[in-house]
């Protein structure tokens, strides 16, 4: 182990300030009155309106229809984030399992077909995707929010690489122990992949949580609004009113950041383990 030097700490502290500073300022500002913010700009002290602002943001029935609250948006975001991550993991694990363990004609070809979809992100295929989802009657539904997004070339690729590194002998031992394809998958492969699953869950949850474009075009009813869309709405609504509710918009931004941060904190040890260690 090398000695810890002062400069190392300085670099790290600077990094923390750079990354965390804006968040802290956003949080501090959100605890002030919107008039005060409008007058004095961003705040660097803790204000008196913390409880009030956050309670308003979470519970006020907003929008044109009055159907949506901050709490409901958080719930929608969670459904999208978790559904997105879980769906991607399930689909890509199954795809990778088929590609690695079954010898079917053109298996490699299909893998590369899946892989090449990396070149076609949502933005490129958004019109056809919308068309299909619309014809299936998925507009304004959680299914429509999640399902069209869960096919994942990245996930399939990661799981494929991982499955390929699992020794063949393990499969053979399982065959001798009477484990069929389904048992082998659920009782051997899934438990072996759990660090991998955790790592992909984190990444995909954050990606899903931050989805903006797709929810915007898929859902028009306010009851399906997510937090990320809500932030914009708070600001937009206030145009025309006297002073925008900066504090509420910032509070919403802080709230929108919390769940991904919690997920990362909870899973980070498994995440790092999944990246550096192969438990076999």
């Amino acid at each position: 182990m090398t000695r810890v030097r002062l400069t190392d700490h300085l670099v790290l502290i600077l990094g923390v300030l750079l990354m965390m500073g804006p968040l802290v300022v956003a949080f501090l500002t959100s605890t002030h009155d919107h008039v005060e913010i409008h007058r004095e700009g961003m705040q660097f002290t803790l204000g008196a309106e913390f409880a009030e602002t956050y309670a308003t943001v979470l519970t006020r029935e907003g929008g044109f229809t009055g159907e949506i609250t901050g709490l409901l948006m958080t719930q929608n975001s969670l459904i999208l984030g978790i559904g997105f991550a879980v769906g991607k993991i399930v689909i890509s694990m199954l795809a990778a399992y088929a590609i690695v363990y079954y010898r079917f004609p053109l298996g490699t070809f299909f893998f590369w077909v899946i892989f090449s979809t990396l070149l076609l992100p949502l933005e490129v295929r958004i019109l056809p995707s919308y068309e299909v989802a619309q014809q299936l009657g998925l507009l304004n539904s959680y299914t429509g929010l999640i399902v069209p997004l869960i096919a994942s070339a990245t996930g399939t690729f990661f799981f494929r690489q991982f499955f390929k590194s699992v020794p063949d002998e393990l499969l053979e031992a399982a065959r001798i122990d009477g484990a069929g394809p389904v048992r082998f998958f659920f009782e051997i492969l899934v438990p072996l992949s759990r660090t991998m699953i955790a790592a992909i869950f984190i990444i995909m949850f954050v990606v899903g949580w931050n989805q903006y474009l797709w929810p915007t075009i898929m859902t028009t009813e306010e009851q399906y609004f997510t937090l990320v869309r809500g932030i914009k709405n708070v600001m937009q609504q206030m145009i025309g009113a006297d002073i925008p509710f900066y504090n509420e918009a910032l509070a919403m931004a802080v709230l929108a950041m919390l769940p991904p941060a919690v997920v990362i904190l909870v899973f980070q040890r498994m995440f790092i383990k999944g990246l550096v260690e192969q438990e076999k």
Partner: peptide
């Protein structure tokens, strides 16, 4: 017959124990 139905047992070179 499938390996499991053959009434055999095998010991592998790399042990092939289930790590989890």
């Amino acid at each position: 017959l499938e390996p499991a139905d053959r009434n055999i047992a095998m010991v592998f070179q790399n042990y092939a124990l289930y790590p989890h």
